[in-house]
Structures are given as structure tokens and as C-alpha cells.
């Protein structure tokens, strides 16, 4: 299955992936109006420090501990994509305790949010990867 992989040494720390993710989630037509003046809450987050940076998002684990732990049956595997049913989520954050990468997080309204490889918003390459100017995140089959 195709997943998002990180080429750490190519990351510029420009945070474009975060903006593209937030834009993709917003469903709006143009980025400037969609994101103007709001605090973005992307599903991919750049970690940086000491001259190192890289983007972290859900690994879509073969053995997804978040799904196994979810107390509400709100997380599930759909064609390999780890998917959240926000309507069923009860805001307990057991999944946050379970995820080894810190890739599932509370959203503004309390339900958890996570990367779903843009399957709900667009087809093909996820928005973060499509917009990365330096190939620091790629969408491919690796293992």
C-alpha cells in the first residue's frame, strides 16, 4: 500500500505541508481565503530543532494500536487507511495513549483528527506530498 514516507534530509522546514493539509481539510477553493487569520490544525506536523526538521503524520500502521484501543469503535481500517468516524468519537483520547508516533490528536471540537491520506477530500496524492517543494515527503510503496 502507498504511504507517506519522510526523507528527513530533504526537509526545508517550510511548513507548506501543514498549510496544504489544513487547506485540503477545509474543502475551500483557494488557500488564502480558507486559511486567512485562522490558527491551522493540520494532521501533519513539522518537528524542528537543532538544525533538524521533518514532518510527522499517521503511519497507517499494519497493526494500528489506535484502532485496537479505541473505546468507541470510532477508528477503523478502510482499505488500509486508518479512518476516524468523528461522529462516533467520544473524546476519551485512548487512541492518543496508544499511538507510538503522536499522530492522532484532539481537534478543536474535541473529536480526534488524524491523517486519512486525503481519501475523503481528494483523489490521488495527498495534499501535503503534492505541495512539498523538495521531495521531503513522498507517497509511495516501500514495505
Amino acid at each position: 500500500m502507498k504511504r507517506i514516507y519522510v526523507n528527513e534530509k530533504w526537509c526545508l522546514g517550510c511548513h507548506l505541508c501543514e498549510y496544504n493539509c489544513a487547506f485540503s481539510q477545509s474543502g475551500a477553493m483557494d488557500m488564502a481565503t480558507a486559511l486567512k487569520g485562522i490558527q491551522i490544525r493540520p494532521n501533519i506536523r513539522v518537528e524542528e530543532g537543532g538544525g533538524i526538521c521533518y514532518a510527522v503524520s499517521c503511519r497507517h500502521c499494519d497493526d494500528p494500536l489506535c484502532v485496537k484501543g479505541c473505546i468507541g469503535g470510532a477508528l477503523s481500517v478502510k482499505d488500509g487507511v486508518i479512518t476516524i468516524d468523528r461522529d462516533k468519537c467520544i473524546h476519551c483520547y485512548t487512541c492518543v495513549v496508544m499511538c507510538p508516533y503522536g499522530a492522532v490528536m484532539p481537534s478543536e471540537d474535541g473529536a480526534v483528527q488524524k491523517c486519512e491520506l486525503c481519501v475523503k477530500t481528494k483523489k490521488g496524492t495527498p495534499a501535503c506530498v503534492a505541495g512539498c517543494p523538495n521531495g521531503a515527503i513522498v507517497f509511495e510503496e516501500r514495505c
Binding site: 494500536l65 487512541c95 492518543v96 495513549v97 496508544m98 499511538c99 507510538p100 508516533y101 503522536g102 490528536m105
Partner: peptide, 12 residues
């Protein structure tokens, strides 16, 4: 509680 799972994984 954000990203607490990173700690859980270290224990595990």
C-alpha cells in the same frame, strides 16, 4: 495529553 502515546511506546 497530546502525543502521550510516544511515552506509552517507550514503556512498551
Amino acid at each position: 495529553i497530546r502525543r502521550a502515546g510516544i511515552y506509552t511506546a517507550m514503556i512498551r
